[in-house]
Simulated scan of single mutants.
Amino acid sequence: MERIEHRACFGGWQDVYEHASDTLDCTMRFAVYLPPQAERARLPVLYWLSGLTCNEQNFITKAGAQRYAAEHGVILVAPDTSPRGDDVPDADGYDLGKGAGFYVDATQQPWATHYRMYDYVVRELPALIEANFPVTDGRGISGHSMGGHGALLIALRNPGRYRSVSAFSPIVAPSQVPWGEKALGAYLGDDRSAWAQYDATALIADAPERLALLVEQGEADEFLEGQLKPQLLRAACEAAGHPLELRMRPGYDHSYYFIASFIGEHIEHHARALRDGG
């Protein structure tokens, strides 16, 4: 593991690391923000999963999250969204291949060797973080769009592993929208029953843990009706009695202007859960 960026930020350090990933069989990068409290104490971690076309840079340069992480004493970890490298297969378009890992473990060729972002986020990356940084066992997870989808499904599939989960503009039902149908079909094959394990709305009914979901959604989001469909998550949560706070925000779109406007509230939400849980 090699540190390739090191920048002072709100009394702490915004770093980027590069490492050889066994899970993805390629070189990966992830960003870590260490608030000033990390110099003297172990702190909880909030994992952030970014959306389509993004890498580890988008969140750390656009969201303004470091200010709030420093205020609340939370370490931020932001991985890339997909495997990278000349040997990694890609596709035409922004919604499949590099920059579009969808946080699944692919089973179909040519994707299966490298596209294992679910396993990377759940196992390999936290193991690296917990071995090399001053962290507690308090974990939260959040994300945007494709990353919001990833945060929700990962929290739902791993009871007890995360103390908090939130999402901005998540793809809540990828099995029922074009982005998800394209990606899940390519990565997992045509058997839609295999898709359910990566579909938050499908997972709600049998979720073994009632971890509260916080979802932030802009009402002016250009993808709201065609790709996001938060009403499907609301209906699934109501049917299952699963706690959900769905905040519909008038005027806000899908951009990082939206995330920057409310990321402070989300970090406070996670910090409270991580503190009270530990």
Results as ranks from 00 to 15, higher is better:
Leu228Asn: 02
Met117Gly: 01
Thr27Gly: 02
Gln231Arg: 12
Glu56Met: 06
Gly148Gln: 04
Leu244Tyr: 07
Gln66Asn: 08
Tyr257Phe: 11
Ala151Glu: 09
Leu224Glu: 06
Thr27Val: 13
Leu24Asp: 01
Ser21Lys: 06
Ala91Arg: 07
His144Tyr: 00
Phe102Tyr: 15
Ser50Thr: 13
Leu203Gly: 11
Ser255Phe: 00
Thr113His: 12
Arg40Thr: 14
Leu96Glu: 04
Asp105Leu: 14
Pro35Trp: 11
His72Gln: 03
Gln108Ala: 12
Tyr252Leu: 15
Glu39Ala: 15
Pro250Asn: 08
Tyr120Gln: 06
Tyr120Ser: 09
Pro79Gln: 03
Gly51Lys: 10
Asn158Phe: 04
Arg3His: 01
Tyr162Ser: 06
Tyr118Lys: 10
Asp191Lys: 04
Val121Lys: 00
Pro243Glu: 03
Arg7Lys: 14
Phe10Met: 10
Ala207Met: 03
Gly160Leu: 13
Ser21Thr: 06
Leu125His: 03
Glu56Trp: 10
Val74Ile: 15
Arg3Lys: 15
Ala207Asn: 03
Gly12Val: 13
Ala236Cys: 10
Asp253Arg: 11
Leu125Asn: 02
Phe133Trp: 13
Arg123Val: 09
Gly160Asn: 04
Tyr103Phe: 13
His269Lys: 09
Asp221Val: 10
Glu56Phe: 11
Asp191Trp: 01
Val135Ala: 10
Leu76Thr: 02
Ala273Asn: 09
Leu152Asp: 00
Leu246Ala: 07
Leu188Trp: 11
Val104Arg: 10
Gln108Pro: 01
Ala127Val: 01
Pro250Val: 11
Gly140Tyr: 02
Ser142Pro: 01
Ser175Thr: 07
Arg192Ile: 06
Arg247Phe: 00
Trp111Arg: 12
Tyr120Val: 10
Pro208His: 07
Tyr252Glu: 15
Ser169Val: 06
Arg3Ile: 15
Leu213Trp: 05
Gln37His: 05
Leu188Arg: 08
Leu184Arg: 05
Trp13Leu: 13
Arg84Tyr: 06
Ala194Tyr: 03
Thr23Ala: 07
Met117Tyr: 06
Lys229Leu: 13
Leu153Asn: 04
Asp22Pro: 00
Gly51Tyr: 06
Leu152His: 10
Val177Arg: 08
Arg116Glu: 07
Ala131Gln: 14
Phe223Asp: 08
Glu2Asn: 12
Cys9Pro: 00
Arg157Gln: 14
Asp15Asn: 15
Ala202Val: 00
Gly241Asp: 00
Phe10Gln: 14
Ala91Trp: 05
Thr81Glu: 03
His149Glu: 10
Ile259Cys: 02
Arg139Ile: 03
Thr113Glu: 14
Cys237Pro: 09
Leu153Gln: 14
Tyr162Glu: 06
Pro250Lys: 12
Gln227Ala: 09
Ile259Tyr: 05
Ala207Tyr: 02
Asp276Leu: 09
Tyr103Arg: 04
Leu34Asp: 04
Gln109Ala: 15
Val16Glu: 02
Gly85Ile: 07
